[in-house]
Design a protein around this nucleic acid. Structure first.
Lengths: 176, 176
DNA sequence: GACGGTCATTAACCCAGGTTAAAATCTATG
DNA sequence: CATAGATTTTAACCTGGGTTAATGACCGTC
């Protein structure tokens, strides 16, 4: 049995409507979620009410708060559905325990974590080495679907600029 | 046999002097390195000669280019010793193959990757949500050893500012 | 102990993006 | 279709940090 199969076999399907949260900052939610279909945003909020978007999630992605699922802390971010979404929810402990007994689940978890690490490393690189404008151009090339589906406000909060700033950059980029 | 033991059993010790590289951007180096002792910086360089520091590594850390070790691409960053350093070098494929046969190596690799993911996620959060000044203050609190051992130039390139910018921030922070 | 190199600070000037606020669209729902 | 909300654009002004360059402190090492 592989990773996705063991999620499907041990998890339960959850349908969540556009505009509703899966969990919010501060919750204790030790699950991970496999996204059957839909669109979500994972975002941080600061005390002074600002929002910063960690990632957008789509079909076949896996998401969960590692600090909550693995360490047992409360969630450091919130997870909101931008479209009607179907998830498979499963306690991380089940997967983690399975991985200790089942070699193929362990392998799949390793591959999942390797890919997660490389994805995070890529984003680290982009913040460290690229300007906002370069990050926007790169997103245009690599993830046109996100640009298409997500509001410009959310795009801005993902790229690390204000919506006003992104509007200016777009004006600069599209009409030279 | 656990993870570190299997690295020590299958790897070979390498001593590298201060100022020398373990590998540079563009190399194909499919190893991972366990740091016995020393201090290193992992950094990106851009075509126009700018340097950006991905991370500092110290005793007991594990480092390697995932994109090279796992995917087989060439290294996207360089690894330089800031102090005389002793490493245990082992091909990632050995560890990865071991993890397929040995449950306890798999478990340790999973824990290593979980911690790596959480570390990268933390840095993503800092770039996304904090100002340079806040990142500097946080580093002061959480990793005073790094502030102490690393030049201010390197600190700046790690925090995502220029050395001149960091000098200004320091002046602001230390004497109100 | 003088010389060349790196490192840190300071100053002057510049610019990308933040902030605030006001238009201009767009969308949804009664 | 009209009204209320959210979204995007534009403008005016401000600020943090980039850039360049000069100055000084701090090493080595010959």
């Amino acid at each position: 049995m592989n990773f996705i199969e063991s999620i499907e076999a041990n998890g339960k399907a959850v349908d969540i409507k556009k505009g509703e949260h899966v969990f919010v900052h501060g919750d204790l939610d030790r699950s991970i979620y496999f996204i059957k279909y839909g669109l979500l945003k994972a975002y941080y909020t600061t005390r002074d009410g600002k929002e910063f978007i960690k990632s957008f999630l789509m079909d076949s992605d896996v998401i969960g708060s590692l600090s909550s699922a693995y360490k047992g802390d409360s969630c450091s971010f919130s997870l909101l559905c931008l479209e009607n979404t179907r998830l498979i929810k499963v306690p991380f402990s089940i997967i983690y325990d399975f991985s200790k007994a089942d070699q193929s689940v362990a392998n799949d978890l390793i591959v999942l974590l390797l890919n997660l690490s490389m994805k995070k490393e890529k984003r680290e690189f982009e913040f460290l080495c690229l300007s906002v404008e370069e990050r926007y151009r790169q997103l245009e090339n690599e993830s046109p679907i996100i640009i298409e589906k997500v509001t410009q406000n959310d795009l801005a909060r993902y790229l690390g600029v204000t919506p006003v700033g992104l509007s200016r950059i777009k004006a600069r980029v599209t009409r030279p």
